[in-house]
Design a protein around this nucleic acid. Structure first.
Lengths: 160, 160
DNA sequence: TTATTTTTGTTGCAATTACAACATATCCTC
DNA sequence: GAGGATATGTTGTAATTGCAACAAAAATAA
């Protein structure tokens, strides 16, 4: 009985987009586009590789042994597999990462950060940090940032 | 005196990225990527054009006379001018918009939505609406959406 | 007026991203 | 363990995006 009513309400909510919902959506799209383009521009001005390189280096640097399987890295970055393949191609050509055989699963190589990759990340960090601060985080209080982080995290998970 | 102190504090804030600041930043990047890819996938499943078409049709439809100057449209969408040129090329080839001479300024044509463009927007609307709801707005309360809209708007303006 | 600078928009070309098809390895069922 | 299904990655090709150079109109200055 209540199950039926709840389902009806849920379905109704799923297909309704309120004014605030649309404003928040547009806000998300424009905010991410604006901030991303400014941060990318900062990196470029400093003759550094794009943000996606930083993301890869950060995830690998944090991971056990400085390496991750292709699919795990793709999942953390929410990147399509074929795009990651080519991103890793470029980074490997630069020496920032290497592909290494995963002894436990011969389907694909794991990706390993190199000492050069770690050095690159450290070189990128201050530029990245200042750019994110100027383009994004300096516009909020700590409380607002914590709230944003909490709210935005909900968008990550796949549709039910 | 106070001016000096204020400036120092401000500069300090500008170049600091707290843990919450970084979490919120990563949240913004991943949230927009996840939601955008799901909404694009929905449009594609329905054999409809990409989200950027909807944005153009919406802005033009709202504008006085259904037309906007290239630069004004680019500014509202936070799109680079050369990307807009080619987006409009594609939409004009499809008949959704036309370029019309702006009598007041012969440098560039304004862009005008056509009746076909309005019809296309109406056809896209329910798919767009449901996709945004399922991928984004249904995960929040109305109050949260209003708060998100307000906060995210701050990211839009250029760095000072 | 004429020259110079700024604004607005397009285009050639290179880099990146998207999609579909493919290849190979692992898993699962019988 | 044989056969089919699933998981993991790569690659060919097309579409899109980014960048720098260019073209033309308008604004500004001399």
């Amino acid at each position: 009985m209540f199950g039926g009513i709840a389902t009806i309400c849920y379905d109704f909510a799923m297909t309704t987009l309120t004014k605030d919902g649309e404003k928040a959506w547009v806000g998300l799209m424009l905010a991410s586009r604006a901030a991303l383009s400014r941060v990318e521009a900062s990196l470029k001005r400093a003759s550094l590789p794009p943000l996606s390189w930083y993301d890869v280096l950060l995830e690998l640097g944090r991971a056990e042994g400085g390496r991750l399987r292709h699919k795990d890295l793709a999942a953390r970055m929410l990147l399509e597999k074929y795009n990651l393949t080519r991103l890793i191609d470029r980074m490997a050509a630069d020496g920032a990462v290497v592909r290494v055989q995963d002894e436990a699963d011969y389907r694909g190589a794991a990706i390993q950060i190199t000492p050069e990759g770690r050095a690159l990340r450290e070189k990128m960090w201050p530029v990245y940090r200042d750019a994110v601060a100027a383009s994004f985080s300096a516009r909020f209080t700590d409380g607002e940032l914590a709230m944003l982080a909490g709210l935005l995290q909900r968008v990550r998970r796949p549709n039910s």
